[in-house]
Design a protein around this nucleic acid. Structure first.
Lengths: 236, 236
DNA sequence: GTGGTCAAGTGGTCAGACCAGTAAAATTCC
DNA sequence: GGAATTTTACTGGTCTGACCACTTGACCAC
């Protein structure tokens, strides 16, 4: 992984304070000159970091006025998901995790349905190859990676730019935690036959069957995670 | 609307070339110094624009190496949707529009279901107020705006950060074209009784009924748009 | 064919100067 | 005394020029 630039450091530092609530919506940030002084970096570096935060919807920068923190829930996009799922101190946010797995259970069948509707002849060998990789994987992490590629194919087959961009966002949140969650995903990625079954009905063009097969594939792991998250909720 | 900064101008200009395909994945951009010279701006301004493009997943900036264009379909997120929907020259991309309306028809019921599951007592008066605004709106554009706020409430009630961030992205794509599409949305926003009906079953906690009511609300406009987009497809 | 060196490209960082916008305080006017 | 206007001091915006650090390709030696 390439090392962080100075603006990257400033960006992550301020982002962490906003995601954690230490900097709350409505708060004013110190001025650019003041931040540069406090953080020991140059003003252009601070400016770049703030502009990137503004692009993520986290701050409102006004010439002549104070830079204020915005409510990322109102303005932010899915690009924030990785940082909401795993806090900068490494803490895993199970509420975000719960939201992701339940949304996945709802989106997966949608993607499968569209893929069945818009499948192309090339899809069958591609799916066969990736199901083969799921079956031949050396461990659960490798299997989980192959599963990501499987869904990537389905998203392509769905021929929907919205689902493509949406899936990119969910994948960006998942990939950093894939290694630590890989073993937990075994409830799903070990079910090679379900992957093959879903592939079969998609290739055959059965939209409703694709929905059901996707639900059948995604439900076990989803319920397992939801059980874990419910226990965490009760532990609070 | 606040005026554009120099980095904003550079960002939009390069973004336009990438979204239009004029700059294709794999292409190398001119160096920062060269771009600054070509565009008649400073190097820090170019750098800031490139860093923002990198944040959007559009370019890969490497110290010592050329800055290359990435495939936004592989890396990009929903934040790109507004620029994919309406090209910089103002052209409306109906393929993106089609993708949005069909995704909307799939996501709306999901959100309604979760809202019915997790509704709170405060939701009823809030929904009543916004349905009132839909009913009392002076024109279709105002009615469409109120409808956006209606769904905003449902997303809050769904208590899902993923749907919240996802909805923010869809809303960001929709709001710039709301005024021009407002009259077309009349098939939906004029159905005040359907908004009230959906609100009723959500407040009552009927998840399945909420799904059906959301589908009933969203389907007419969706089918109208899909018909229009199909005609555009056949015209090509 | 491989490995090492070097030059010339690239991006990264910064200080300092100056421009432009905004908001609050101070002053003036009625 | 209050409203309107002006001034001031903050804020961000932009740029130049210098220098640092990384990467790549050419060239040379073996």
């Amino acid at each position: 992984m390439s090392r962080k630039s100075v603006p990257d450091e400033v960006f992550e530092q301020l982002m962490a304070q906003m995601v954690s609530g230490k900097l709350a919506p409505g708060d004013s940030l110190p001025s650019e000159r003041r931040l540069a002084e406090l953080l020991g970096v140059s003003r252009p570096a601070v400016r770049e970091a703030l502009q990137r935060l503004a692009q993520s919807g986290l701050v409102d920068v006004r010439q002549g006025g104070a830079t204020t923190v915005q409510d990322y829930r109102q303005i932010g996009g899915l690009d924030l998901l990785p940082r909401l799922l795993v806090q900068p101190d490494g803490e895993f946010n199970w509420r975000v995790g719960r939201s992701i797995v339940e949304t996945r259970l709802q989106l997966g069948p949608n993607i499968a349905e569209l893929a069945a509707r818009r499948r192309t002849p090339e899809l069958e060998p591609q799916l066969a190859a990736v199901v083969g990789r799921i079956g031949d994987a050396a461990d659960e992490v490798e299997r989980a990676r192959a599963a990501v590629d499987y869904w990537d194919l389905l998203v392509d087959a769905a021929d929907s730019i919205v689902y493509r961009l949406l899936y990119n966002g969910l994948r960006a949140a998942y990939e950093p935690v894939l290694e630590s969650l890989g073993s937990l995903m075994s409830a799903e990625v070990d079910q090679v036959d379900l992957y093959q079954g879903l592939a079969d009905v998609i290739v055959a063009g059965y939209e409703e069957a694709a929905r059901r097969a996707a639900t059948e594939l995604l439900t076990p792991a989803t319920e397992m995670f939801l059980t874990v998250f419910q226990q965490l909720e009760e532990a609070e």
